[in-house]
């Protein structure tokens, strides 16, 4: 069974029933190894004969340049920022995710509405307002949350980039003038919000403290099961007919 729906009303002109494919979301903080895992998944899926489309946040042609500019100046209010991100999100949803799903692609989303909701929640946005704002998003077929312990996260961030990022440290919130301290408080708050979202949206939590290889094996196992469920009938039928395994 492969039936897509939106959380609330679909966007104007989008019919979720016409969508096929698979929408897989990987969530997790920066330096959680998220991007690496998605890269590996994409390659693996390609090898297995699935067409893959990768999407992420702040990648739309529409607002990405303005967003970058605004972030550098740090001049937008949290609400304006939230709406900017929402514009970016829906631009990608309608111009990339929907067409890809229509065509039967496996869409790998490097974060989705959950990160956007979490960031804005930490910055004081009204939870109901946020949920309504993102209610036109398509419900993913699976959401994997990479969870990494805070000390581990800061260690990885520092070894990877040699410095903390202004936004990922929540410096705009004025939690502390000390970047390290601000980073720790901010990430802790994000984690608390994510813990709430986890139940609400049915995440599959992946232990991100393990090696990249182990995590990947875990993910593949789950993705395999998911694709079997979504496209399974088809594959089995083909396999039965000509006695060949497909997609391997």
């Amino acid at each position: 069974m492969n039936v897509k729906r939106c959380f609330g009303q679909p966007p104007a002109g989008v019919d979720p029933e016409k969508l096929q494919g698979a929408l897989i979301v990987v969530e997790g903080p920066d330096s959680s190894g998220r991007s690496t895992q998605i890269e590996l998944l994409a390659r693996w899926l390609g090898e297995r004969g699935y067409a893959v489309e990768q999407v992420g946040l702040k990648r739309s042609r529409l607002v990405a340049p303005s967003l970058e500019q605004a972030q550098e100046g740090n001049v937008l209010s949290p609400r304006t920022m939230t709406l900017f991100y929402a514009t970016d999100f829906y631009d990608q949803l309608e111009n990339r995710i929907v067409p890809a799903l229509k065509a039967g692609y496996v869409v790998l989303a490097d974060r989705y509405i959950y990160t956007l909701i979490a960031r804005s929640t930490v910055r004081g946005a009204d939870p109901d307002w946020l949920r309504s704002l993102y209610s036109m998003a398509i419900v993913p077929d699976a959401v994997f949350l990479l969870r990494v312990s805070a000390p581990r996260l800061v260690e990885r961030t520092l070894t990877q980039r040699a410095s903390l990022d202004y936004w990922e440290s929540g410096m705009d919130l004025g939690l502390s003038r000390d970047w390290y301290e601000s980073f720790m408080i901010y990430q802790r708050r994000l984690r608390a919000v994510f813990a709430g979202l986890q139940d609400e949206y049915d995440f599959q939590v992946i232990n991100g403290n393990r090696s990249a290889r182990t995590i990947q094996r875990d993910l593949r196992f789950r993705v395999e099961a998911l694709l079997g469920r979504l496209f399974g009938g088809e594959h089995l039928a083909e396999g039965d007919d000509d006695g060949q395994a497909t997609g391997v």
Partner: peptide
């Protein structure tokens, strides 16, 4: 600030009803 993005979107006719609405809300 938002003028930029609006101009970009309008020029290329990239906007859907949803993004048109959101960019004005922003």
């Amino acid at each position: 600030l938002v003028k930029d993005a609006t101009r970009r979107g309008k020029k290329r006719h990239l906007l859907t009803p949803t993004t048109f609405s959101l960019i004005h809300a922003t």
